[in-house]
């Protein structure tokens, strides 16, 4: 991993700015509502991009259905946005969850191809450097770590913050942040073990 860029402070400030934007939009400030809608206008595109990335072949009506669920959930939970991640990252999680719920229901995994009419073959992910574990599974396991370990691990790997920046933002000692991170990774390894085995 490379050392974290000098945009650390900018990222932290951006999340605080996002929180303020949400609060102003909830208070019906017209400019804030416009800005918030503009920021989250990429949510339907996230669904399209993610379903392509997963190789899912959903019908347009299924996509519409999932999009409705995502937007409903997103706006319904807006008041709970705490600025722990950028708005788009926060929205992405809704997209990921709703799409996987739909795919779980359909059990149409992108990596399964019918061969010889009988056998199911695992088609390897072609992209080099791609994660071995399904990103949604990884995220779900990180969330199972619970607060505050989940936030520390997310800030480190999803927001690309340094330990120093995480400690500063959380108002905690650097050693405490590192301890939680290390223990968190130990627990995460146990949680991911069955998924890693399945991938191999």
């Amino acid at each position: 991993m490379t050392s974290r860029p000098s945009e650390e402070t900018t990222q932290a400030d951006a999340h605080a700015a996002d929180r303020s934007l949400v609060q102003r939009a909830l208070a019906r400030e017209p400019r804030a509502v416009d800005e918030l809608v503009a920021r989250l206008a990429c949510t339907p595109a996230m669904l399209r991009v993610l379903q392509r990335q997963l190789g899912a072949r959903l019908r347009p009506d299924e996509l519409t259905d999932i999009e409705q669920n995502i937007l409903g959930a997103l706006w319904g939970k807006l008041a709970g946005y705490e600025g722990r991640a950028a708005l788009e990252t926060w929205a992405f999680r809704f997209v990921q969850l709703e799409l996987h719920k739909a795919l779980d229901r359909r059990r149409r995994s992108a990596r399964l191809t019918l061969v010889d009419g009988e056998r199911l073959e695992v088609v390897p992910c072609a992209e080099p450097g791609a994660p071995q574990i399904e990103p949604a599974t990884l995220r779900a396991c990180v969330e199972r770590l619970g607060s505050p370990t989940c936030e520390i691990v997310s800030m480190r790997h999803y927001d690309e913050l340094s330990f120093e920046e995480i400690a500063r933002q959380r108002g905690e000692a650097l050693s405490a942040v590192k301890a939680r991170y290390y223990r968190g990774l130990e627990r995460l390894k146990a949680l991911l073990e069955p998924h890693l085995r399945r991938q191999l």
């Binding site: 339907p44 991009v49 574990i133 990103p135 999803y158």
Partner: peptide, 25 residues
């Protein structure tokens, strides 16, 4: 290994968000 998975997962997520931003209509 776990940290590398997290890095890869995080990077993929950021790439997808950037692509979605570019495609929003």
């Amino acid at each position: 290994t776990v940290a590398r998975e997290l890095d890869a997962g995080g990077a993929l997520e950021r790439r997808l968000i950037v692509a979605a931003r570019a495609q929003a209509s």
